[in-house]
Simulated assay, not measured.
Amino acid sequence: MWRSIASNGISLLIVLTLLLGGAIIYGKREYRAEGPLSEAICVRVAPGETMRGVSADLQEQGAVKSGALMRVGAEYTEKADDLKAGAFLVPARSSMADIVGLVTRGGASTCGTEIVYRVGVRSSDVLVRELDPATSRFIERAKFVPGEGDAPQAYTDVKAQSDTRFRVAMAEGVTSWQVVQVLKAADVLSGDVATVPAEGSLAPDSYEVLKGDSRESVLERMAAQQSLRLQAAWESRADDLPFDTPEEALIMASIIEKETGVPDERGMVASVFENRLRRGMRLQTDPTVIYGITKGEGILDRGLRRSELDRATPYNTYQIDGMPPTPIANPGRASIEAAVNPEVSDYVYFVADGSGGHAFAETLEQHNANVAKWRQIEQNGANQ
């Protein structure tokens, strides 16, 4: 009798062991299997939230089949206590294992709301936007110019959210003074700016910042980035440049940046100016004259006067030989690379061609013909 009971007990134990093993295998497979999401969603994890709450929310949204199984999987992989606050983009068909990895990995939020402090050449603003996870496109919530009236309520609300990201976006060709003005208006940053950084020393780019970051630390990041870009470009420079130092290359790059907004033209514009330097011709470029007037503080919203073109200043390249003493803006990577590796040409003139680009010429006769065409285009536009 006891032998029969023992035999039955062993059989039951074997069956239970097999069932448990099967359940574990099934659970592991389901934990790593493709999920039910048909399109991406944004998952927000509040500070102090638990894996139980997050998994229940995900089950309710149809992102996982079983919140309980997700919790078990997170505990089995020892990630249940590693939740990070933030907003995370969960792609379609993500497995439970994928989602647990996203919400426990940490780092910057990958979706949700974002405030961008934008430094532009002609104007600067603050943009409040939110990522639409289904399309991976941003939806504008608010946009305003700092200092012009009260900030919209959307800005105040979004700024207070724990998962909001903050960014400073610096356009190519802006001046250091313009950057500092925007940083001063960014009320999520701290501290003062002792001095405006040297012109040209800041790298145009998009910089993620955190609440409480100092303004000086952001400027230091921008300067370090520009230094690296300039160093890399200078090390791969062409052999026959008409200048001798990286600092002079930066001046040339800033002129190129201000002379053309057409990316494909940068190398040819660089060729014109560097051919002029080789031939001992003056650069004769309006942006340098304008910088001599504004000192980079704001824009000159009018044409240059004859008296300004005739006045001898360190930045008036109609009156001085060679380049101005400093850059006239903060050039981007492409303009720096064009300055040290220009196109090869015999062009020494260029003028607008009416398409947004320029017509280039090797001789004054060709240039005058191009100028006449441009003046005709201007006249036709004025008559319309």
Rank of each mutant, 00 (worst) to 15 (best):
M1R: 13
N8G: 14
I24A: 12
Y31Q: 01
R32Y: 09
L37R: 06
I41D: 03
A46K: 15
P47R: 08
G48M: 01
M51H: 09
M51I: 15
V54M: 05
S55M: 04
Q61P: 01
L69I: 02
M70A: 07
A74H: 04
A80E: 10
A85S: 14
A92F: 03
S94H: 04
S95H: 04
M96I: 01
D98P: 03
G101D: 11
V119K: 08
P133K: 10
P133N: 11
S136N: 15
R137I: 10
A142S: 13
D150G: 00
F166H: 12
R167Q: 12
R167M: 12
V168R: 10
A169Y: 14
A169H: 14
Q178M: 11
A185C: 09
V188K: 10
A194Q: 15
E199C: 00
G200F: 07
E208I: 06
L210W: 09
D213H: 01
A224I: 01
Q225A: 15
A233N: 06
R237Y: 01
F243G: 03
P246T: 02
E248G: 00
A249M: 08
S254C: 10
I255C: 05
D264N: 12
V269F: 02
S271K: 00
F273P: 06
R282Q: 08
T288Q: 08
L300S: 05
E308F: 04
L309Y: 09
Y318Q: 07
I320T: 06
I320H: 05
P325C: 05
P325K: 08
I328T: 06
G332T: 03
R333M: 00
E337S: 03
A339R: 01
V344S: 15
E362W: 06
T363S: 10
Q366R: 02
K373W: 07
Q376M: 09
E378T: 10
Q384T: 12
